[in-house]
Amino acid sequence: MASTKQQEQNAAKTVKVKLIKPHTHAGEQLDPGAELSVSEADASWLTEHQVAERTDTPAA
């Protein structure tokens, strides 16, 4: 399990994703093809649920 400090650092990092399904983000309905900057955790959730694909390379 990640420490609180590691979780805070991951939350501060943003990555770019491109939606592949319709999705509501921050109360706004977005269509496939929309590009977003989201936290690392949100990007993981979106890709795991096949809602978006990353358009950048994950941090090592």
Rank of each mutant, 00 (worst) to 15 (best):
M1A: 07
M1N: 03
A2V: 10
S3G: 01
T4E: 13
K5C: 00
K5G: 00
K5D: 00
Q6H: 04
Q6S: 05
Q7H: 07
E8N: 03
Q9P: 02
N10Y: 06
A11Y: 05
A11F: 05
A11T: 09
A11P: 01
A11C: 02
A12C: 00
A12M: 02
K13Q: 09
K13W: 02
V15H: 01
V15S: 03
K16H: 09
V17D: 09
K18E: 00
L19C: 06
L19N: 03
I20N: 04
I20Q: 03
K21M: 12
K21L: 13
T24I: 14
T24E: 15
H25S: 13
A26P: 03
A26R: 12
G27Q: 11
G27I: 00
E28C: 08
Q29M: 15
Q29A: 15
Q29E: 15
Q29N: 14
L30I: 14
L30P: 06
D31H: 10
G33N: 10
G33P: 00
A34M: 09
A34W: 05
A34N: 12
E35S: 08
E35Q: 13
L36I: 02
L36F: 06
V38Y: 03
E40D: 15
E40W: 11
D42P: 02
A43S: 14
S44Y: 07
S44R: 10
T47N: 11
T47K: 10
E48Y: 11
E48A: 14
H49N: 15
Q50D: 15
Q50C: 08
Q50W: 09
A52P: 06
A52T: 09
E53Y: 05
R54C: 06
T55S: 04
T57F: 05
T57C: 02
P58T: 10
P58S: 08
P58W: 11
